Simulated assay, not measured.
Amino acid sequence: MFTYSDYNLTKEWSGDLEVHPRTEFSNMLRYKWDQLHDDSNVFRYKLGNIRERIIDKKTRYLLQLNPDRGSNRRSPEEIANLNQPFNTSKFNFTKVSPQEIMFDLVDEQNATDLHRVIVNVSPISRYHSLLCPSVNKCLPQVATKESLKLAIDMFFLFQDRDLRIGFNSLCAMASVNHLHYHLLMENNTLPVEIAKCNHIKGPLYIFDDSYPAPGFCFQIKHKHSIPQLAEDVHKLVRYLHENNVPYNILVTRGQGMGWEGTDEIVRVVVWPRRGSYVVKLLGAFNVAVCELSGWFPVYNDDDFENLRTEDIEIEIKKWRPEAFDILCQEIKSLF
């Protein structure tokens, strides 16, 4: 079990990735994941060299072929609505085998909460893991202010350019109704990280019309801004939840928005979207947080070889929320 201070969360992150090699925390996760993957039977399938291709230089959509995830993953839970309560009789992360647990993390300011990092036994890619905030409290899959702060804290803690942290709400492709975030490693730059944004109000930005998945964006450079950022993101997420709008969240690095001379900052993106009430393969790919970011795990060779930009954008646009312009004005009034 580790506390935040064990991994030097208090150290200022300057944004200069060249002078921040991977932290001990990031190296430990990679080592433990590799060890479990190579030397145990915890995973539902083993990952070899995943084939990938970038569709075109303009959009930079990333396709990765992973047929096993399409056929061998755990059956998703049936989700009826955003307010579906936690159900102890369903699969949840208190029921994983001890082998799946990589480590526990305790916030010294709130030691009653046990935050757990486990392997995802049906990984999208190498090092795909799950952060389960307050796992002992058995919370449903709703992004709380405390869990958002923890996820952003961990993002700074890793200091690893490959890390992304994602969240799928209920009715937005979450497959387990127990609070969790996805820890994902990918060395390609994703389209969402260079997408152009327009300032709306206060800390709130929005993607311009060139990005096919409309979403809201926040930015942060220094760790001392984390509490306010978590507050701002949660204000938006709470509004979406109270108005029955499913959502996906991504924490990633990306181009700065409106800060001259800043090449790269941390972006927190929130996508409101149409709901999906049955988690199953709806086409060549499902649309969850990875796909909204421009990263597409696909499950068969034909789709991998033949998908084009127009195919992807047609599918992505199907999940745009209704009356997004009206929603945008309502969100603007929160700030």
Rank of each mutant, 00 (worst) to 15 (best):
S5C: 06
D6S: 11
K11M: 12
D16H: 06
L17N: 12
P21E: 12
R22P: 14
N27H: 06
Y31W: 04
K32W: 04
V42T: 15
F43A: 05
Y45W: 04
G48H: 15
N49P: 01
I50L: 14
R51Y: 08
E52L: 10
E52F: 12
I54L: 05
K57H: 12
L62G: 01
L63R: 05
L65F: 14
D68Y: 13
D68E: 15
D68W: 04
R69S: 13
R69C: 11
R69E: 14
R69Y: 11
S71G: 05
N72E: 13
N83S: 14
Q84Y: 09
F86V: 01
N92F: 07
T94M: 13
T94P: 00
K95Y: 03
S97T: 13
P98L: 02
Q99M: 05
I101G: 02
D104G: 09
D107C: 06
E108N: 05
A111S: 12
A111Q: 12
T112I: 05
T112Q: 07
D113M: 01
L114E: 13
R116S: 14
V119C: 08
S122M: 05
P123Y: 00
P123S: 02
I124G: 00
Y127W: 06
Y127S: 02
L131P: 04
C132P: 02
P133C: 10
S134D: 10
L139S: 04
L139G: 08
P140T: 01
A143T: 03
T144Q: 05
L148G: 00
L148Q: 00
I152H: 00
F155H: 07
D162V: 01
I165W: 03
G166A: 06
S175L: 10
V176D: 02
N177E: 07
L179C: 03
H180T: 02
H182C: 01
L183F: 14
N187W: 05
N188I: 01
L190I: 09
P191A: 12
A195K: 09
A195I: 08
K196W: 02
C197Y: 06
C197H: 13
H199V: 00
K201V: 14
L204A: 08
I206C: 10
P212F: 05
G215M: 07
F218K: 10
I220V: 14
I220H: 03
H222D: 00
H224W: 05
Q228Y: 08
A230S: 13
H234S: 07
Y239N: 03
L240G: 09
N244E: 11
P246V: 09
Y247L: 10
L250H: 03
Q255W: 06
G256L: 08
G256Y: 04
G258E: 06
G258T: 07
V268F: 00
V269E: 03
V270H: 04
G275D: 06
V279C: 12
K280E: 15
L282H: 12
G283W: 03
G283S: 15
F285I: 10
F285C: 09
N286F: 08
A288P: 12
S293Y: 08
G294D: 05
Y299A: 09
T309S: 15
D311K: 08
D311G: 02
I314S: 10
E315F: 02
I316Q: 03
K317Y: 09
K317W: 02
P321F: 03
P321N: 04
E322M: 09
A323M: 11
F324K: 09
D325K: 11
C328D: 01
S333A: 12
